[in-house]
Nucleic acid binder design. Sequence first.
DNA 1: GGAAATTGTGGGAAATTATGGGAAATTTTT
DNA 2: AAAAATTTCCCATAATTTCCCACAATTTCC
Lengths: 147, 147
Amino acid sequence: MPGFKGQSTNSVDDKGRVAIPKRMRSCMRSEANNTLVITRGFEKCIFAYPLDEWTTIEDHVKSLNPYDRKHRAFTRQFMMWAEEVSIDSKGRISLSRPLLEYAGIQHTTLLLGSQTYIEIWNPDRFDDYLNEEDMDYESLAAEVMAQ
Amino acid sequence: MPGFKGQSTNSVDDKGRVAIPKRMRSCMRSEANNTLVITRGFEKCIFAYPLDEWTTIEDHVKSLNPYDRKHRAFTRQFMMWAEEVSIDSKGRISLSRPLLEYAGIQHTTLLLGSQTYIEIWNPDRFDDYLNEEDMDYESLAAEVMAQ
DNA sequence: GGAAATTGTGGGAAATTATGGGAAATTTTT
DNA sequence: AAAAATTTCCCATAATTTCCCACAATTTCC
């Protein structure tokens, strides 16, 4: 199954629902059971994992040591933001208030396919991110994809 | 299977579709399933990879570490521009708005065969590129093809 | 404490917008 | 001139968005 790709600017209705683009939805396996787990992502956006993919990650977190202060801190922050949401008959999911606030999303959002997960951004914030240092695509490519 | 070769100036219709020249289409393996993956290329043009070729690249990206900021940045920027498009019965593919805008393509485009992928340029931008310093064909040959 | 009101949430229909497919005309090539 | 490739144009389908309705949960008032 190919990874999530592409970008799309979609609107968020007054109940916090966004339509997931068809082309991303169709990258989900049936084991995901038409369900995404949304959570706090890195770089102040929301990440959405298909349920089956999420389960793998959660298994990894389960193996952390609850008696280690740092492991515990990570587990707590990782889980407290996560939420299972199912994709409705119109291809939408609803985003919780805390996550919308965390990502600074209001009426419009930018959805990015990024391999194993979908990213949900405030479009302006994403622009700012791209303008940060070290984010030049060609340099990143040369560095990361060095052979 | 020989690599993509040649050049062609084709028009883009109002829905962003271009015909891929027959001579390039016939360089695709059947495993490509009549499908190209178009994405942001370097030097502000669009790259189009046959699906089978693309899959190899995506596999490499899949092996990057999502908890490393730079790997994540590259994966994000690499995947967000990518899109699977199938070649229709008239030999056309459709280019997404974001890619057309990125490459500055409007009504006319220049297609270049470049070995494993096809490049899709704004013709004027390509002229400018050729006039840049360090782009002299003979010097490049001497430097890159040294034995 | 219970009923009614209010608010929040979810589902879905219909309108709008975007996307895709193909026929026919045109251009290019042989 | 004939054949093939490309382009334009029109039509059909699909995706997204807006809007409305129904139900559930919570709150307020009696």
